[in-house]
């Protein structure tokens, strides 16, 4: 049995799809815009289906582009997590000595990631390493800054409590800062992932020979609008799935336990 609220939620999702595809279909059907500029949704989905199921030896499968993009995204993202989280924590915790470093980060941060493209192109040449570096760059800032902020916020309140219990440095970092800063950390990962996923597609258009961005870009030069839109849908869907099934889940598994229904469940 579904609860009332659930039914309403599903209806809402259905209605939003109906609005979107209905409007699109109507526009394509009645506006007079030729189909090679605005193909109707059914044609785009037919193309998408064909691309997903086309495993002929002669053509490049869409799956390869998807895997290329995801591979670069994950590699670059992992790099910025490995570097950004410890750096943010150290700068937030140790403070003084690292404030100079933090200033520097904040000076570089306002440069839009996309402005790095020419430099990265010269350094790495077009290809996977350039894209991976761009992803790393885009994800690094939010991850570093949220780790920094989370550590800072903790400092006065929980650190004193931990220090008065005689906690070792190791214990403070592993049991206080890491879990205590988790709300910030997760937020940083989420922001960093979203930011870098967006940039990945843009960078692939400029710097790559494969990947989703490149697929979209090539389709433009061939005037295959249905393929462009199909590519956009795949990119959006992949971003959405990670947001929903990785970050939302991670948040619920951790923060959910600490705060869920806090008001209702208060006892005594």
């Amino acid at each position: 049995m579904m609860k009332d609220g659930q039914v309403r939620r599903y209806l809402l999702v259905l209605a939003s799809f109906a609005w979107f595809f209905g409007g699109w279909w109507a526009l394509a059907r009645f506006s007079g815009i030729p189909p090679y500029l605005l193909p109707p949704p059914q044609q785009v989905f037919a193309t998408l289906f064909r691309l997903l199921t086309d495993f002929d030896a002669g053509t490049r499968s869409l799956w390869l582009d998807i895997f290329d993009s995801i591979g670069r995204q994950l590699t670059g993202f992992a790099g910025s997590v490995i570097l950004g989280v410890p750096l943010g924590i150290i700068c937030g915790y140790v403070g003084k000595a690292f404030l100079g470093f933090d200033r520097m980060v904040r000076l570089i941060y306002p440069i839009p990631s996309i402005a790095w493209v020419p430099l990265v192109l010269i350094w790495f040449g077009p290809g996977s390493s350039a894209i991976t570096f761009m992803v790393f760059l885009a994800a690094f800032w939010p991850i570093y800054m949220q780790a920094f902020e989370g550590t800072r916020q903790l400092s006065s309140k929980y650190l004193r409590a931990a220090e008065s219990l005689g906690a070792s440095r190791r214990s403070i970092i592993l049991s206080i800062i890491m879990p205590g800063g988790l709300p910030y950390l997760l937020n940083g990962l989420r922001l960093g992932y979203g930011e870098s996923w967006r940039l990945l597609v843009a960078a692939e258009m400029l710097l790559a020979t494969t990947g989703m961005g490149q697929l979209i870009q090539v389709s433009r030069s061939m005037l295959e609008v249905d393929k462009i839109i199909a590519g956009m849908i795949v990119v959006g869907l992949l971003g959405f799935l990670v947001e929903r099934y990785v970050f939302d889940r991670a948040e619920r598994a951790t923060l959910g336990n600490w705060y869920r229904r806090a008001e209702e469940a208060t006892v005594g």
Binding site: Y158, A161, S164, G166, I176, P179, G180, Y259
Partner: peptide, 16 residues
């Protein structure tokens, strides 16, 4: 140090 326990005004229990 742990020879001096502290109880603060605001609650500083580790929420996690």
């Amino acid at each position: 140090g742990p020879d001096r326990g502290v109880v603060f005004q605001e609650h500083t229990l580790f929420e996690w």
